[in-house]
């Protein structure tokens, strides 16, 4: 069993917006800086006027790895972990579990789209390859 994220004031929007099918990233309302991991103040301009906004839920694979080692009991392998450049949030990446794909098909620069599955109090994202060209 993988640990779930410990919910905080900062990260709760990210881990719960999946209930609405949304990926949310925190932005600064004063300078538009995208802030991830989310913080209570903007590292660029120090504004406290920050908050979560929905982004399209698509992105592009910056890099990835195929995990083959079952690190904990019951872990199904292999699976793909990607680092995804998030569309609509410049400079922000998320570490993403890819679902429903053959590891052999995954390439850098491929487009991906988010989905969610509820687990306890959170909606864990998983990502699917988008058919065709990059997102």
């Amino acid at each position: 069993m993988l640990p779930l994220p410990e919910l905080t004031r900062e990260n709760t929007p990210f881990w719960t917006a999946g209930e609405r099918g949304e990926l949310v990233i925190v932005f600064c309302d004063d300078c538009t800086h995208a802030i991830h991991p989310p913080q209570l103040l903007c590292p660029a301009c120090q504004s406290r006027n920050v908050g979560p906004r929905a982004v399209p839920g698509t992105g592009k694979i910056y890099t990835f790895t195929v995990n083959h080692q079952p690190w904990i009991p019951g872990m199904d392998v292999p699976f793909v972990l990607a680092v995804v450049d998030v569309d609509g949030a410049p400079g922000v990446r998320v570490t993403a579990r890819l679902a429903g794909c053959d590891p052999e098909d995954v390439r850098i620069e491929q487009g991906v789209r988010i989905g969610f599955a509820q687990s306890g109090d959170v909606w864990l994202p998983h990502w699917h390859l988008v058919a065709g060209a990059t997102a």
């Binding site: 993988l2 640990p3 779930l4 994220p5 410990e6 905080t8 990260n11 991991p37 910056y62 890099t63 990835f64 790895t65 195929v66 995990n67 080692q69 690190w71 904990i72 872990m75 699976f79 972990l81 990607a82 680092v83 998320v94 570490t95 993403a96 579990r97 850098i108 959170v122 864990l124 994202p125 998983h126």
Partner: peptide, 29 residues
């Protein structure tokens, strides 16, 4: 653990448990 915080809290819940995963994606790039 049932829950995890800090920077590992962005990695472990999606299955990126091992430093070999993090080093692996750096190597891929």
């Amino acid at each position: 653990k049932a829950q995890i915080g800090g920077w590992m809290g962005w990695l472990a819940p999606v299955g990126a448990l091992s430093a070999s995963n993090w080093a692996g994606w750096m190597a891929t790039r």
